[in-house]
């Protein structure tokens, strides 16, 4: 993964899209154009204490002047969203990285989106591009209720009758079978893990091939029962072997030995700390890598190995 420039952007507008979701418009104080991005991309937001959080860009990728992000206030979260809601008023400065794309539109004749809650953010940007291109797409938007559905007016304006809303408060629940058959289509799922799981299960039953499903978890896989075991990591370039104890991550051990990998979320979501491996059985625990990438790449912050692994470092 690549290093990205961090910019001090000015909050041009800050509005509550729902009582819990802050919709921000960011501009560069000097440059007329921000770095270009593809729909589905995200940026890092840096907090004053140095922590980093990822937010998908939800604005118009054709508008080079502004970035838009939407931040859900998580009162039980790790504090970043509370800070953002309190501090990022119009005129404030937000430290934001250039965008990175882990989640992209694919070549397909038809595009089906299933999004839940704040997972709407990348889908809004992607749907905007598809609408501009005159592509065939459908967006299923799941939320508790209409007033709690973030960016709903924007999504309606972009999608028109290609949007189907599923508000549980109205007794309407999304049936994953509605994604339909797979032929010539690509499926995009973003939202909480349980939505991803339900849609993946239905997609498998309907015969969707794995490579036609793009999913973006808005939190990394939580497997409470996972018990980390120690393992050894060998560096291909020097043949040096590092021991990774059960209570430490591969990323931390690499850092201790002076190998500073780029890293960001350290939750297995952003893909910053991914590196290649050539030998070994890897226990993938991230939400960033595709099945194909997992053959030779490892997210060093959360993933581990059985007994040993040889890293392409």
């Amino acid at each position: 993964m690549t290093a990205r420039m961090i910019m001090k952007l000015r909050v041009e507008a800050a509005a509550l899209s729902t009582p819990k979701v802050l919709h921000l418009t960011l501009v560069h104080p000097i440059r007329p154009e921000l770095p270009a991005w593809e729909p589905g991309a995200h940026v890092d937001l840096r907090l004053p204490d140095g922590k980093i959080r990822q937010y998908s860009l939800c604005g118009d990728s054709a508008d080079r002047r502004t970035y838009e992000i939407a931040i859900k206030r998580e009162d039980a979260g790790r504090g970043a969203s509370r800070w953002a809601h309190d501090a990022l008023a119009p005129g404030a400065v937000a430290h934001v990285s250039a965008p990175r794309s882990n989640f992209r539109l694919q070549e397909a004749r038809r595009h089906v989106f299933v999004v839940g809650g704040i997972g709407v953010t990348p889908a809004l940007a992607m749907a905007r591009r598809l609408a501009a291109d005159g592509a065939d797409f459908t967006v299923h938007f799941c939320a508790r209720s209409e007033p709690e559905a973030p960016l709903l007016p924007e999504l309606r304006a972009v999608c028109g009758d290609r949007l189907q809303t599923w508000f549980s408060a109205d007794g309407r629940r999304f049936d994953p079978q509605l994604i339909g058959p797979a032929h010539d289509a690509c499926l995009y799922v973003c939202g909480p893990q349980r939505l991803l799981d339900a849609v993946r299960t239905a997609a498998a039953e309907l015969g969707w091939p794995e490579q036609r499903i793009c999913a973006e978890a808005f939190q990394a896989t939580l497997d409470e029962n996972f018990k980390p075991e120690p393992f050894d990591a060998t560096l291909a370039s020097t043949a040096e072997t590092l021991h990774v104890p059960a209570d430490r991550s591969l990323l931390e051990v690499l850092r201790d030995h002076g190998i500073t990998m780029p890293s960001s979320c350290e939750l297995g979501v952003c893909g910053s700390c991914v590196c290649g491996y050539t030998e070994g059985v890897v226990i993938h625990r991230d939400a960033a890598l595709s099945v194909a990438d997992r053959q030779d790449k490892i997210a060093t912050c959360v993933s581990r190995a059985r007994v040993s692994v040889t890293l392409d470092l």
């Binding site: 840096r46 907090l47 004053p48 204490d49 140095g50 800070w83 309190d86 501090a87 990022l88 008023a89 005129g91 404030a92 400065v93 937000a94 430290h95």
Partner: peptide, 16 residues
């Protein structure tokens, strides 16, 4: 809460 205190916090550099 959008007072000056939090505005200053927003402007602060990451701690070195």
């Amino acid at each position: 809460m959008r007072d000056d205190e939090t505005r200053r916090e927003a402007l602060a550099e990451p701690q070195a």
